[in-house]
Amino acid sequence: MKKRQNVTIKGTKDGIVLHLDDSCSYYELKKELDEKLSENQRTQAESQLTPVKVDVGNRYLTDAQLEEIRDLIRQKKNLVVDKIESNVVTRAEVDKLKAENEVVTVARIIRSGQVLEVPGDLLLIGDVNPGGTVIAGGNIFIMGSLKGIAHAGVFGNDQAVITASSMKPSQLRISDCLNRAPDNAQNNEKREMECAYIDDNHQIIVDRLQVLINLRPNLTRLEGGH
């Protein structure tokens, strides 16, 4: 009977992919991984640096075990760990994902020197005064005047938007893009129901709120509906 392989090595144009069986014991897996990598190493050119992607399937690995796998790969000449992928999602990751997709509603005025930060979307019922700051991992919706600083998509979400009933910010930030007070916000010009978003040139644009219907259709998240 042919022995079952717990470790499969597949070469790609970007390096090698290691598929690790998720049903065998961790000890067996580590032992075979060491053997297979040693065999593979003898076929590699001495000067060739090879990125390694590891797929552990449905196996849960502790941080210590993940580090052991990384160390085992690093010990082999010219192998560099690119990433380790798993189908297992931890409770902490689920909670983080849930928080980042939740809309937090706050009814208050953000005064000068105050900072309000949420992991997901922010719905603020109130004003952001000059010197006040609101920060969100997702979108920022302000039912009031924005006269301070707003930073949406703080974790790198380029699709995040900022909306306000009255848009007169001292600074707008979305992801890593920054835009100071828009030019046409001078002379206390009244600006109602507007939005800010990143365009195709990676610039922050302030426009009518209605443009979001076409630009960000996924803003509408109705469960069981369309």
Rank of each mutant, 00 (worst) to 15 (best):
Thr163Cys: 05
Ile69Trp: 00
Gln48Trp: 13
Lys2Asp: 07
Arg191Cys: 03
Ala136Tyr: 01
Ile149Asp: 06
Lys76Pro: 02
Glu35Leu: 05
Asn179Trp: 09
Gly138Pro: 02
Leu18Glu: 01
Leu79Thr: 02
Lys98Cys: 11
His151Ile: 00
Thr12Pro: 07
Leu122Met: 05
Ile204Trp: 00
Lys168Ile: 09
Ser38Trp: 13
Ile125Pro: 06
Ser86Pro: 04
Glu223Trp: 10
Gly138Thr: 00
Gln65Asp: 07
Leu72Cys: 05
Val7Ser: 01
Lys190Gly: 15
Glu85Ile: 06
Ile125Cys: 09
Ile149Ser: 02
Lys190Cys: 10
Ala64Glu: 13
Lys30Arg: 12
Ile110Leu: 02
Ile142Pro: 01
Arg91Pro: 08
Asp121Tyr: 07
Thr90Ile: 06
Asp22Pro: 03
Met167Asn: 02
Asp199Cys: 05
Leu20Trp: 01
Asp21Ile: 01
Pro217His: 02
Leu209Asp: 12
Leu49Gln: 15
Asp127Val: 01
Asp199Arg: 07
Asn6Val: 11
Lys190Pro: 14
Asp55Arg: 09
Arg42Ala: 09
Ile73Phe: 02
Gln5Asn: 09
Val118Phe: 01
Gly137Arg: 00
Lys147Asp: 13
Pro182Val: 05
Ile135Thr: 07
Asn218Tyr: 14
Lys190Ala: 09
Asn129Ile: 12
Lys190His: 15
Ala136Pro: 00
Ala160Val: 04
Asp127Thr: 00
Glu46Tyr: 12
Leu33His: 01
Leu79Asp: 00
Ser170His: 08
Phe141Ser: 03
Ser145Pro: 08
Pro217Phe: 02
Asp55Glu: 15
Gln41Gly: 10
Ile73Gln: 05
Glu32Thr: 03
Gly137Cys: 05
Asn58Leu: 08
Tyr197Thr: 08
Lys190Met: 14
His19Leu: 15
Asp199Lys: 06
Ala136Lys: 03
Thr62Gln: 08
Asp207Ser: 13
Asn179Ser: 09
Pro169Gly: 05
Asp183Trp: 10
Glu93Ala: 14
Arg4Thr: 15
Asp121Arg: 04
Lys147Asn: 13
Leu146Lys: 02
Asn78Gly: 10
